[in-house]
Structure formats: C-alpha cells, structure tokens
Design a protein around this nucleic acid. Structure first.
Lengths: 134, 134
DNA sequence: CTCACGTGTGAATAATCGTTCAAACATCGT
DNA sequence: ACGATGTTTGAACGATTATTCACACGTGAG
C-alpha cells in the first residue's frame, strides 16, 4: 500500500509524514468507510464515468427497455461497443437483460441511478464553470 | 465519432446497424442529455471513481477541514499523491482550499458530494452481491 | 439444412490514469 | 541569511481502460 500504513505516534515525529493534529488524524482514520466500501463506491462511480455508458443509461432512462442494436443506434456507438458496455453494466447490476429469441432487451435494474444522475446534474447546475486551479 | 453517426432511415435498413424500432430510437436520441452535460457528468463521476480521492473526500466529510499532511496520513497515501488528488478535486470545485502561512487547509466545497456518496451507499446496500455475468 | 441476423466474446491496439521520484517554491524559526 | 518544513509540480513509469476488429454462438426464416 504505502511505506507507512499504520498510525503515527501521537507526538508529531517529522520524517516522511509529519502530522499536525494527530488526534484528529486518528479520529478521521477510524471513521473512514471500510476498504470494501471504498472499492465498491469507486467501482460504481467508475461505471458512470464513461460517456458511452452514460448515454446508454440515459437512453434506458428515457426508452425504458431497448434491444442492443437500437441502443447502439440511439447512443451513437457500434453494436460491439454497446455490447461491451452493457456487459459491464450488467455485471454490476446496473441493468438487467431479458432475452427473447435472438434479441436481448436491456432495462435499468433500479432507480438509484436516475437519482444519482439527477443529483449530479443539480450539482453541475449551480456552481459549475470551467475548471480552475487556485 | 463512429462510422454512421446520423439517424438511420425510418424503415429499418440492414447494413452496419439494423434498427428494430426506429421511431423510439429517434425519440430517445433527441431526449438524451447534451454532449456537454454528458462530458461533465462523466468527469464528476470519474473524480469519484478513485479509492484515494474517495478516502480524501470521506476524510473531509468527517474532519471538516484538514491540512495536506494530515489528510495524507489519514487516508494512507503520500503527501505528493494527496496533493495531486486534491489538485484535481480543487480544479473541479469539489474541494476548496484556505492557505495560511505554509499550510493549506482543504474542505469540501458543498454538500452534494455527501449526498452522492450516501445515495450510492444505499444503492450498494440493498442489492449488491458479487458481480455476475448473465 | 443453410443462410442471414442479432448478439456476445477475445485479442490487440491505443489512450488514459495513478503513482512515484526528484526537485522547486514559499514560509517560518533561529 | 540559512536551513527546515509544508506544499506543489513535472516527468517517467506502470497499470488500467476503452475501442476496434474479427470471429463464434444461438435463433429464426426460407
């Protein structure tokens, strides 16, 4: 993980990682989400961090249930790319699939994703300009 | 973008991208968020898709306002890595910085991030097992 | 059966991203 | 002024990821 992963001594020793408020550091440290939770969160957010997948989800949000080729056409990507993306979303329970014959109809698994996107759009709406540095 | 980015003819021609329900495709297509919105959403979610940044945000959620070295210690990463991550978060208005002397104290810019994380944790809570494929 | 079609998959390429190291910068103490 | 300290930065490397191509699978039509 890193060169010094355990708690530093309470009196700030200054070698590779000086600490100003050791008490707060220890406090915050044990209040952090578990490693498993962090990984799961990162994975979900990672799924939503790709424009192609985001378009796919938006399409399902609007269309309700669609087959792969229609999703590909609606989101402007190749069927192969759409299938790869849907596979990822499927593996993480974001979408569900219903197969009839040679068709595969995808739909969203639950409504949490819609809330996530709506909340983020709200976040973008009120204080987003261009990125800046200071 | 791709080899065929405009709308297909309304009667499903079958060449590189067959369409089953052309009407719905056109309908969904024009209801999609703008390209700019998609990019912004992807960027925000991308920021939250890294365990290090997620720990940083969680620490600030708990600690309120902390300096870089304490954040590094609390989240178990080097000060350099923490600084790089904070720079990214800062550029996207997720955190704000207050500088006094040689110290830099970071805090969250708003509470949207907390809602995002809480909502996602709720999502993870009710239907998350291991990923699967079918 | 044979062919066309919608979909799924694997491998290879390119692009992106995170981490680390080394150094620079600004500030404080002596 | 000098050195120590907290922070920032740039470049290089390794790892992860997206995209494409080609082909395989199963299904329905003739």
């Amino acid at each position: 993980m890193n060169n010094r992963s355990n708690i530093v001594s309470l009196s700030a020793d200054a070698c590779s990682s000086p600490v100003v408020d050791a008490h707060r550091v220890a406090d915050v440290r044990q209040a952090l989400p578990s490693e498993q939770m962090i990984q799961d969160l990162a994975q979900i957010f990672g799924l939503l961090s790709d424009p192609g997948r985001l378009r796919l989800i938006s399409a399902l949000l609007e269309g309700g249930e669609m087959c792969v080729c229609d999703l590909a056409a609606a989101t402007g990507q190749s069927m192969s790319a759409a299938s790869h993306a849907l596979r990822l979303l499927r593996a993480n329970r974001v979408v569900k699939v219903r197969r009839t014959g040679r068709m595969a109809y995808y739909r969203l698994a639950d409504s949490h994703v819609r809330m996530l996107i709506d909340l983020t759009i709200a976040h973008l709406g009120h204080d987003e300009g261009d990125p800046h540095d200071d």
